[in-house]
Computed example of a mutant assay.
Amino acid sequence: MSGRLDRRGFLAVVPGAAVAAVLAPHAAAASAAAAADMEMVVLAAQCDPVKDGTGLTPGAGPSVRLVEQALVDEGLLAAQYVDGHFGTATRTAYGRWQESLGFSGPDANGLPGKGSLTALAEGRFSVTRLITPGSRTTFQGFPFNTRTVAMLTEAQRLAKVSLVVEQGSYSPGDDPTSAGTHDGGGAVDLDAEALTAAQRTAVLTALRRVGFAAWLRNPSQDDWPWHIHGIAVNDTALSTPAQKQVGMYYLGRNGLANNGQDDGPQVTKTTWEQYRRTA
Rank of each mutant, 00 (worst) to 15 (best):
residue 186 G to H: 09
residue 68 E to A: 06
residue 274 Q to I: 05
residue 220 S to L: 13
residue 185 G to I: 12
residue 108 A to T: 05
residue 196 T to H: 05
residue 30 A to D: 11
residue 271 T to R: 02
residue 89 A to D: 11
residue 197 A to G: 14
residue 45 A to D: 04
residue 200 R to P: 08
residue 166 E to Y: 07
residue 240 T to N: 11
residue 105 G to D: 13
residue 5 L to S: 07
residue 169 S to I: 01
residue 203 V to Q: 05
residue 163 L to T: 01
residue 33 A to T: 09
residue 87 G to Q: 02
residue 242 A to D: 03
residue 250 Y to R: 04
residue 41 V to Y: 06
residue 131 I to M: 05
residue 117 L to Q: 07
residue 279 A to L: 00
residue 110 G to M: 02
residue 17 A to I: 14
residue 266 Q to M: 09
residue 116 S to G: 07
residue 181 T to F: 12
residue 62 P to I: 02
residue 136 R to T: 11
residue 224 W to P: 09
residue 24 A to D: 13
residue 214 A to K: 00
residue 73 D to T: 11
residue 200 R to K: 13
residue 69 Q to G: 03
residue 131 I to E: 05
residue 136 R to E: 10
residue 233 V to G: 03
residue 167 Q to K: 09
residue 28 A to I: 11
residue 114 K to W: 12
residue 251 L to I: 06
residue 39 E to G: 10
residue 175 D to P: 07
residue 254 N to S: 05
residue 233 V to E: 07
residue 159 A to S: 02
residue 63 S to D: 02
residue 110 G to T: 06
residue 260 G to A: 00
residue 97 W to I: 04
residue 267 V to N: 06
residue 51 K to V: 03
residue 168 G to A: 00
residue 187 A to E: 14
residue 234 N to S: 06
residue 224 W to L: 12
residue 232 A to F: 06
residue 217 R to D: 13
residue 247 G to E: 00
residue 222 D to L: 10
residue 262 D to E: 06
residue 113 G to E: 08
residue 244 K to A: 15
residue 94 Y to W: 09
residue 179 A to W: 12
residue 72 V to Y: 01
residue 232 A to T: 09
residue 77 L to K: 07
residue 235 D to G: 09
residue 172 P to T: 03
